[in-house]
Design a protein around this nucleic acid. Structure first.
Length: 573
RNA sequence: GGGGGUGUGGUGAAGCUUGGCCGUUCACGCCGGCCUGUCAAGCCGGAGGUCGCGGGUUCGAAUCCCGUCAUCCCCGCCA
């Protein structure tokens, strides 16, 4: 039996032909003698006219099959908002293939039901045109990636999803082993070591659309499991990696947006990015850059600034442009700055007569006020915000305020950027060092790393779009001795190095080619390109912020017997 | 671990600031009826809610307070 001869979206040119369509009742407009039914299938919507046919038992989202004849719509009834709006199907018969219960929510892009309910009935949510479009976009993105990389000679290779746990980095998702009770696999946080092993294995050009798992708290752009384009190449430097990633991203943007972004992407060093935007994932769609005011304020009488500058701190500011600046906004921004760790926030409004209105104006000399306004290119009406403090605090607080005040809604414009030259290490709270990328990243200068590790730069780079970190990569360490030195600096003892990474250090000893690579989040890229505010809109079956799936009710307790087989006993809370 | 927002018939919203006229209102859906050119069709009628849950304040709580659960956003965390 042939269910249908055509898709709903394809009937425009078929006037006079007999067709059979199958899909859902998206709308029914019953005029008594005549009824209009919008039938929706995966391709789109077509109007069916039932003249003299019984339609009382057709309800929302009933699955139906319509046989009839395509005809041009009468004069004056063309619907310009519908791609098939010039034609309609005059139905000879309408058959209910499958009725539907009353819906838990309207399948309408104009209203969003509560997200928990949408997840509980995700199969209905995904029928909504916007969600269906996101599924298609995702498929096209993956297809574009494969096409571009296969053209460049890459091999798509799968790596295990049951791997050895590594305590570094994110929390692992653990899987107990039945055959070795008391031992656990981890789900991969990324295929990092396996792709390096593939370089040692002679693959030279590897990629994978890889599912990754990180058991950390959720955010709008973070889920427990997510999908990355993971790739790696041998005999590669930064430029080769970045060019390849740019090609893959450009192919995706081309297929989803219909135009390619300008290549190459601009590049910022991590230092520049922090100094100018207060973030390592800068949103370059707007200016409002952070400006250093320390030299303008050298020798100032104002204690608040002078004390900071004497203790090696900085004073920096942003010009937020001309805006209304009621007391309530000043208070709100001050609160925000304090919550982010600033001692306070200094605001200044440039009055029409160019005088500064500010709580601290009376403490600042005239030449200092003038210098501040000039440094921030202030015009009458502009609101300036200043933060004094340690460099890192000052720039990150201003970076956050910059986003609060200037960030565009949505993601219509795209501003890709490479952020390069990340620090090799960061200090942890307890004074130890940790890696800022991952422990297999090559330093730019081995001598600097040994002697002044906190000043050492890594051969690591991120790609960012509109303030969203898409992914990161690096040139890897390919000498076992250097790898050991990095482990030493990270405070991993020789015994630990051997027990946890001995197998990998051994592999490095067999003629490892220099190599490097990258991984970026496909969910995030599609999210931005589809102008979605969170990653769940582009993941077919995501979880809530507490890792719960309201449809299948996972996670769930398991049988005593299952636990016993695994040698697991639960502890009462 | 912390901060903030939300929770009101199946769905979306208003009501909460300032307690009583409130299980009151609007739209969609659902049920019944009318209607031959609509496209979120229209008109008439109807059903449907322990106002997330628990406790407290009060003569009286959807509304105020405390706790708790769910969900969303953010900080921490996320190589």
């Amino acid at each position: 039996m042939i269910f249908r001869t055509h898709m709903a979206a394809d009937i425009s040119g078929l006037v006079g032909e007999s067709v059979s369509l199958a899909g859902w009742v998206a709308r029914r407009r019953d005029h008594g003698g005549i009824t209009f039914i919008d039938i929706r299938d995966a391709s789109g919507i077509a109007q069916v006219v039932a003249d003299g046919l019984a339609t009382e038992d057709l309800r929302m989202e009933f699955c139906i099959r319509v046989m009839g004849t395509v005809r041009a719509r009468p004069e004056g009834t063309i619907n310009a908002d519908l791609p098939t709006g010039t034609v309609e199907v005059a139905a000879d018969s309408i058959e209910v293939l499958s009725p539907s219960d009353p819906l838990p929510f309207m399948l309408d892009d104009r209203v969003d039901a509560d997200e928990r309910t949408r997840l509980e009935y995700r199969y209905l949510d995904l029928r909504r045109p916007r969600m269906a479009a996101n599924l298609r976009a995702r498929s096209k993105a993956v297809s574009a990636i494969r096409r571009s990389l296969e053209g460049l000679g890459f091999l798509e290779i799968e790596t295990p999803t049951l791997v050895r746990s590594t305590p570094e980095g994110a929390r692992d998702v653990l899987v107990p082993s039945r055959l070795r009770p008391g031992s656990f696999y981890a789900l991969p946080q990324s295929p990092q070591l396996f792709k390096q092993l593939l370089m040692i294995a002679g693959v030279e050009r590897y990629f994978q659309i890889a599912r990754c798992y990180r058991d950390e708290d959720f955010r709008a752009d973070r889920q427990l499991e997510f999908t990355q384009l993971d790739l790696e190449g041998a005999y590669w430097g930064e430029n080769e990696v970045q060019t390849t990633i740019e090609a893959a991203i450009a192919a995706v943007v081309q297929d989803l947006r219909g135009e390619s972004p300008p290549l190459p992407f601009p590049r910022l060093t991590w230092q520049e990015s922090m100094d100018r935007y207060g973030a390592d994932k800068p949103d370059l769609r707007f200016g409002m850059e952070i400006v250093d005011l320390s030299s303008e304020l050298t020798g100032t009488e104002f204690r608040g600034f002078a004390a900071t500058l004497e203790s090696n701190g900085v004073v920096r500011g942003i010009n937020t442009g001309a805006r209304e600046f009621p007391r309530s906004l000043a208070d709100k921004l001050t609160e925000e700055a304090k919550a982010l760790g600033a001692a306070g926030l200094v605001w200044m409004v440039i009055e029409p007569d160019s005088q500064l209105r500010s709580p601290v104006a009376k403490f600042l000399a005239a030449h200092e006020q003038k210098a501040i306004v000039e440094a921030l290119a202030g015009q009458p009406g502009d609101v300036l915000l200043l933060v004094a403090g340690p460099w890192r605090t000052a720039v990150t607080v201003l970076g956050q305020l910059r986003l609060s005040l200037g960030r565009p809604e949505g993601h219509r414009d795209l501003a890709f950027v490479w952020v390069t030259d990340f620090p090799m290490f960061e200090e942890t709270g307890d004074g130890n060092l940790t890696f800022s990328h991952h422990p297999f990243t090559s330093p730019q200068d081995v001598e600097v790393m040994r002697n002044r590790p906190l000043e050492a730069k890594a051969r690591a780079y991120d790609v960012v779009v509109n303030g969203v970190e898409l992914g990161s990569g690096s040139i890897r360490i390919h000498h076992p001795d250097l790898q050991r030195q990095v482990f030493d600096i990270l405070g991993i003892s020789a015994e630990e190095q051997e027990s946890r990474f001995g197998w990998f250090l051994r592999a490095l000893r067999y003629g490892t080619p220099p190599h490097g690579g990258f991984a970026f989040g496909i969910d995030r890229l599609v999210m931005v390109l589809q102008e979605e505010a969170n990653i769940r809109q582009v993941i077919p079956f995501p979880k809530t912020q507490t890792g719960h799936d309201p449809m299948t009710m996972s996670p769930s307790p398991v049988d005593e017997g299952q636990l016993a087989e695994l040698g697991i006993a639960l502890v009462e809370e």
